Amino acid sequence: MSVLHVVSVSGGKDSDATLFLALNRYPKSRVIPCFADTGNEHDAVYEHLDYLEAALDIKIVRLKANFERQIARKRLFIARDQRTGRDDRGRKLRWSNKSKRRALEALHPTGNPYLDLCMWKGRFPSRKAQFCTQELKRDLLVNFQMDLVDAGHRVVSWQGVRRDESLNRRNAKLFERLNPRLYAYRPLVDWTAQQVFDYLRERRLIPNTLYKQGMSRVGCMPCINANKNEIAQIAARFPGHIQRIAEWERLVCAVSKRGFATFFNKELHTDKGNDQHVHATNCIESVVDYARTTRGGKQYGLFESHIDVSECASAYGLCE
């Protein structure tokens, strides 16, 4: 029974370092780098994966979720919905005939995992319901690893997790047994971001170029958790991504029962605001305008409004 080492690769600094550590410790034949493609990635991520394959002489397995069956079931549900009653806010449970026509016209698989997931759910992920991570990454990688386990292998899942990343990861274990033949190994749990960059520089591995373009993390572009500065940088440097999100909002609104859905939920509204007001204050154009303001969101600042995209911008001091 062979032991295989599956490394979760995202195109970011932590997974780069984790991959190099695995390749430095075990033969390439026993190391399987895996990338879960969300469909909401920047082209620089794909370019960086190509760079890693060439620089390290490896092949990265690329996984992508498919929601065609879920969308087909939702179409059938909407068409047949005849429920009676109301929800806890007094709204009718049943899809109206108008909303049915609107949703069934738009609800078709696009081939983009992120967009198809949101159209199936009828909403975008949020901090309290971050289903994108589970549906687009975690489940794909776990299923891939379990297939290897079912084929008779022992599998070690290498994860680029650091305890200082967030409160949710402060208790991350270095090594953990997940089931009799599946283990999790997190070699960076005690590292800092600076140590990761130093490690890559010493091994002459070039980090993803997005780190020099105002991004503090590499993953979805944009991420629903992007901060104000990152949103401003994305709008200035990659306006095409903002335009894409605006189109996604239009499609997800169309397949939502009430017709309102926004990519971001920055709570730029009163708690008692109605659906239309909440949508107007959180749609991508409004959030980008907010990101260009100074603290308090009431005045445009010189830096926020005039980002020079030709200049290097790094949260980690990589421009120095």
Rank of each mutant, 00 (worst) to 15 (best):
N179G: 09
W248Q: 06
L140F: 05
T133F: 05
D275A: 13
T262F: 03
E247M: 12
L49P: 01
L167I: 01
R94E: 05
Q70G: 00
D50I: 13
Y183I: 13
L117I: 01
N225W: 09
E176C: 09
R244E: 05
L4I: 11
R101P: 04
C253R: 05
L140K: 05
R75I: 00
P109R: 00
D81K: 04
H5V: 08
R170Y: 06
R258V: 14
E285G: 08
Q195N: 07
Q130V: 05
K64Y: 03
G273H: 11
Y211T: 11
P33D: 10
L318Q: 12
L200S: 09
L136K: 00
K92R: 15
A72E: 00
I78D: 01
T38F: 03
L23I: 06
S126R: 07
K100I: 09
I71K: 00
L210T: 03
H279Y: 13
R69Y: 04
L104W: 02
A226D: 12
L251T: 05
E267V: 10
G273Y: 08
V278F: 03
V218F: 03
T133K: 02
Q82E: 06
A172K: 04
T209A: 15
G240L: 13
V149R: 01
G297K: 09
F175V: 08
E47C: 12
Q82I: 00
I58N: 07
